[in-house]
């Protein structure tokens, strides 16, 4: 009874970099998102936060914009990596890696561009 061979996902030399983005995204989201949720979801609505103009000025500060962009980009790539393997391993679609991986990381790139647009052009 020989084992059936099945094609796994295609490997790329960029895999370590994708994993670093995934890993960094998980870390950044785990550290920063709970703080943001606590502040904007619980503390400010219940206890009253700083006035709108003040918050807007804080958000518009160049350092804040860069930090938020970094968080958004890393979180997008974290999602892309996780979603790619959820689809490829979870649904057994590893042979479609050539299609799935570019779609996932492409979506992360698009999300990053949208975040940059919001943070640097519309804010």
């Amino acid at each position: 009874m020989a084992r059936e061979g099945r094609a796994g996902p295609r490997r790329r030399p960029v895999e370590p970099f994708l994993w670093l983005l995934f890993s960094g995204g998980g870390m950044a989201a785990a550290v920063l998102v709970p703080v943001l949720v606590l502040l904007f979801g619980v503390v400010f609505p219940l206890a009253g936060g700083p006035p709108y103009d003040h918050l807007r000025a804080v958000a518009a500060h160049p350092l804040t914009r860069v930090a938020l962009l970094g968080l958004a980009v890393l979180a997008f790539f974290h999602w892309a990596h996780r979603f790619r393997f959820a689809v490829e391993h979870g649904l057994g679609l590893g042979r479609l890696d050539r299609l799935i991986a570019p779609l996932c990381y492409g979506a992360a790139l698009a999300g990053s561009a949208a975040a940059a647009h919001v943070l640097f052009l519309t804010l």
Binding site: R3, G5, R6
Partner: peptide
Amino acid sequence: CPVYALDEDF
């Protein structure tokens, strides 16, 4: 290992 189940080259 679910990855090994999918890909015996792992």
